[in-house]
Amino acid sequence: MLEINDLHASVGGSEILRGLSLSVRAGEVHAIMGPNGSGKSTLAQLIAGNDAYTVSRGTVELDGEDLLPLSPEERARRGIFLGFQYPVEIPGVNNAYLLKAALNARRKYAGLSEIDAFEFLKLARDKMAMLNMDPKFLNRGVNEGFSGGEKKRNEILQMAILEPRLAVLDETDSGLDIDALRAVANGVNALRDPDRAIILVTHYQRLLDYIEPDHVHVLSEGRIVRSGDKSLALQLEEKGYDWLREAASA
């Protein structure tokens, strides 16, 4: 589904990704791990189309289509969803309003009719019940005054409603207490689907106790230095990232 080949990218003149390649198939869950500054968030932002990052070499394709010339909204409409590490507050803009506009933008692109307010509310309420969220969330400003845990849960709600083909969840576990983490993980697990791929970007192994990945990749200095199954994450937890750096330089 997603093919990344020899990707080189920089931000503000410094090169962050240095020849990253990754292949993700439908139905798979991939975990991308790595120390701070290894390029994990850059990869997530790049897939979503943040133009602060400049690609100097390499390709990114979704189902064979070149993603790089596409704007963020064009990518979103093709089914790419980014769960932000720091979800943005947009004061005064109703959460439900944003979600409905987003869903209809995606439906319109897919040639479907726009969903009306009534249907939307029903859909949103169902998804919120699934995620055990208070329906009051819908009527608040987008992330306005939300706690860290609420913001992350709101990201998962958006993902549940938008039903993306490819979800990239950037540090969705950071700043969560154990209950919030469990709620978020349950939400993600519920959205696992043979037609959908999920990329989890995380620093710690903790999240993977709840969401079992098919593949684990370790990113270091802008490159995937090792790939394996979930046992790789456990090894990392035990030995730390230095172990890999040594292994890489050896």
Partner: peptide, 19 residues
């Protein structure tokens, strides 16, 4: 953030200003 959710930039600006 809005564009990542599929909303065109112009609409996103209107949305933010109206908010």
């Amino acid at each position: 953030y809005c564009r990542q959710r599929g909303i065109a930039e112009e609409d996103a600006v209107n949305m933010i200003v109206n908010g």
